[in-house]
């Protein structure tokens, strides 16, 4: 027994000394095998227990186990420590330069005209407007006559209108769509007609093709005040809650009364600036109550009333996105288009 005791204590000393020199997980694994493996002294001692007196076996076994447990504990502690260190090393060796750019995909963009049009549709949809489309090559009859534009009206001139034949034009507004809708449907009518329109003009503020959206509401009991309410709703959603509107009397052959709509200048918020010529207001669209003569052309009953409004989409886009030159909308320069991602 004494013999075993001294053996165990010298083994304990040797193992502890060796363990203290273990500095990494790999040598710890080697140590594990050396200290506890099948070739280890401890294992040998365990196996030799059978050779002892039966009376001494129990005590010897307990002593050996105690040392084994002690060594195992030490190994576990050291292992936990080494693993933490190792993780730290690994993480620190994996540090990235997070200031380098990520992989960016080239994102396309909708045309600014499309974006404004979509916004307009979203604004008017909840009010029950549907979208109506129509041809761009149009009969003079629908482009002018039905809209109460007299034969000698200046807008019919070759200087302003593109002609295909004597009585066929490129539509100068999307109003023919409204007329055709009324000719095909009985009231109530509530439509938005967007699209390309054409006028014979070409400079910084005019292009021979541009886009319009026109709205038309016809029903019994439609009032001028409904037009005003609709335009206020539109202006606030398009240009911001704080936008005010102002209606000024004007003249269009297809509406009576007619008005022009001004909204608070988007640039100076009404204080007055170069863009609004110091008035604080910007002219946005033309509108009015549908002229009874138009209803007559469309065979509508006498007791219906309605309002219509029309605006240039590019004009809105120029104000909203601060675009200076109308022509840039149609040049297709990708540097221009990319700004509207």
């Amino acid at each position: 027994m004494l013999d075993l005791n001294s053996k165990l204590s010298s083994l304990e000393g040797a193992l502890k000394a060796e363990l203290s020199s273990v500095k990494d997980l790999k040598s710890l694994d080697e140590f594990k095998i050396k200290a506890l493996g099948k070739k280890s002294e401890l294992y040998q001692l365990t196996r030799n227990i059978g050779e002892l007196d039966p009376a001494q076996r129990k005590t010897a076994g307990a002593l050996i186990n105690k040392l084994k447990t002690y060594i195992e504990q030490n190994i576990a502690e050291l292992e936990a420590g080494l693993k933490t260190d190792d993780n730290k090393n690994k993480l620190s060796s994996e540090v990235l330069d997070i200031t380098m750019p990520g992989r960016v995909y080239p994102l396309g963009a909708s045309h600014p005209v499309t974006q404004v049009l979509n916004e307009l549709i979203e604004i008017f949809k909840p009010l029950g407007y549907s979208i109506a489309n129509g041809p761009e090559i149009e009969h003079e009859y629908y482009n002018f006559d039905v809209l109460n534009i007299p034969r000698e009206h200046p807008s019919r001139d070759m200087q302003d209108t593109f002609y295909i034949m004597d009585n066929v034009v490129l539509r100068t507004h999307t109003s023919p769509v409204q007329a055709c809708t009324m000719l095909q449907h009985t009231p109530p009518v509530r439509i938005l007609s967007p699209g390309r329109v054409y006028r014979s003009d070409y400079d910084v503020t005019h292009t021979p093709m541009f886009h319009q959206v026109e709205g038309l509401v016809v029903d019994r009991g439609i009032k001028f005040s409904h037009l005003k309410g609709t335009l206020l709703y539109f202006a606030k959603r398009m240009f911001g809650e704080k936008t005010s509107i102002r209606l000024r009397p004007s003249y269009f052959p297809f509406t009576e009364p007619s008005a022009e709509l001004d909204v608070t200048c988007v640039a100076c918020k009404g204080k007055g600036c170069r863009i609004c010529k110091n008035t604080g207001w910007l002219e946005i669209l033309g509108c009015g109550m549908v002229n009874p003569n138009v209803f007559k052309y469309c065979n509508y009953p006498d007791d219906v009333t309605g309002f219509a409004f029309g605006m240039g989409i590019e004009r809105i886009a120029m104000l909203k996105y601060k675009i200076g030159d109308l022509r840039s909308f149609f040049e297709g320069d990708v540097r221009f288009l990319r700004q509207f991602q």
């Binding site: 489309n133 029903d219 439609i222 005040s225 409904h226 005003k228």
Partner: peptide, 22 residues
């Protein structure tokens, strides 16, 4: 004065007929 005209929205009338363009 157009400024004296109140701003009000007409009642919404939705007709099922007009949906193609949308």
């Amino acid at each position: 004065g157009y400024d004296k005209i109140p701003a009000e929205l007409p009642a919404v009338v939705i007709s099922a007929e007009f949906s193609d363009g949308t």
